[in-house]
Simulated scan of single mutants.
Amino acid sequence: MKIYRANIVPLNDQAIGTAAHGSALFVVNGDTLTVNIEMFDTPANEQHWEHFHGFPDGRPAEIATAAQDANHDGFVDLPETEPVSGTTMVPFNDQPETMDVPNDAYPVADANGYFAYTKVVPLAQLDAAFKKVFHDSELALDKRVIYIHGVAPSLNLPSTVAGEVAQYDHHVTLPIAVGKIEAVQL
């Protein structure tokens, strides 16, 4: 059994008015990956995309901080995270093993901004899809970071905030929390 953990800390909290935080636990046991994510103080009653990000070449990803606000608009948007965190890789939605990122199958926070996500993922299917998309790269959880995304559509974002994905605008993709995934037991 292999165990990985991430302490998820706020990102963009000054700009969005809430300090989303939580934790993630990843357990590889035989042919399954069990993912447990628990979040507090996220924007309430909103769907929150969650993924791990990283570099396909295996470089270790790092978490974005306010220092990544390259255009100095007060927000670290999705494109500004890429130099330190890499690209969106595996979604934590209703079927992570399909690697289908842009959809409406992510957790929704309750009225207090809380949500919990648990999913048992078939590891062989996830690994095959991951290798197909990222050209034989390994999952390498300890080289990845987890992001939680999403603010209310009513939040006034400057026109400089980017991050549209398919039909979803930057309100959906704006990072609100991030954590470095670290090995606990290998």
Rank of each mutant, 00 (worst) to 15 (best):
F55M: 15
T32C: 09
I148A: 12
D100R: 10
L126R: 09
I16Q: 01
I63V: 14
H149Q: 07
P83F: 08
P122L: 11
P102S: 12
N156E: 15
L11I: 15
L141C: 05
G179W: 01
P107I: 07
R59L: 10
N45C: 12
P79C: 10
P60S: 12
L157P: 01
P122A: 06
V76R: 03
L25C: 06
L123W: 05
R59S: 15
Q167C: 00
N36A: 02
N12P: 10
A162L: 09
Y4R: 04
F55T: 13
T118C: 03
N7T: 09
L33A: 04
F52I: 14
F40S: 06
V35E: 06
H21G: 01
G150Y: 05
V161N: 01
F134E: 10
E38D: 13
F92Q: 07
F52C: 13
A70D: 00
T32P: 03
L126D: 03
Y117G: 09
Y106L: 09
V172H: 05
A67P: 10
H53D: 09
F26C: 01
T98E: 14
G86A: 12
Q47P: 02
E82S: 08
T18C: 13
A105C: 08
Y117R: 08
A70C: 00
N112C: 05
Y147I: 03
I37H: 03
L123T: 10
A6R: 02
R144G: 01
E182K: 07
P79A: 06
W49Y: 02
V151C: 03
T173M: 13
K143N: 12
P83E: 09
M99I: 13
L141G: 08
V172S: 09
I181F: 02
A20M: 00
T87P: 00
A183H: 00
D69T: 06
P56S: 15
N12K: 14
D136Y: 10
E82Q: 13
T65D: 07
N29C: 11
P79G: 07
H170I: 03
P158E: 06
K180I: 02
G58E: 07
N29G: 06
M99S: 05
A67C: 09
A105V: 11
P102R: 04
N112H: 15
R5C: 08
A44C: 07
D41V: 06
A64P: 10
F26H: 01
V108D: 00
T42I: 08
L25G: 06
D94I: 02
Q68F: 00
N93H: 13
A70Y: 05
P153T: 10
E80S: 02
Y147F: 02
P56D: 13
E138S: 15
T32A: 14
A64T: 12
F52H: 11
S137E: 07
A44N: 08
D77A: 05
V165N: 04
L25F: 07
V161I: 04
Y106P: 03
A166I: 00
Q125T: 15
D127V: 00
H171G: 02
V101Y: 13
P96I: 10
V184W: 04
P158R: 04
S154F: 10
D110T: 10
K2Y: 13
M39R: 00
D100M: 04
H48Y: 09
E164D: 13
L126P: 04
M39W: 02
P43C: 08
D31C: 03
Q47R: 11
N103G: 06
L157Q: 02
L78Q: 07
Q185Y: 12
D57N: 15
P96D: 01
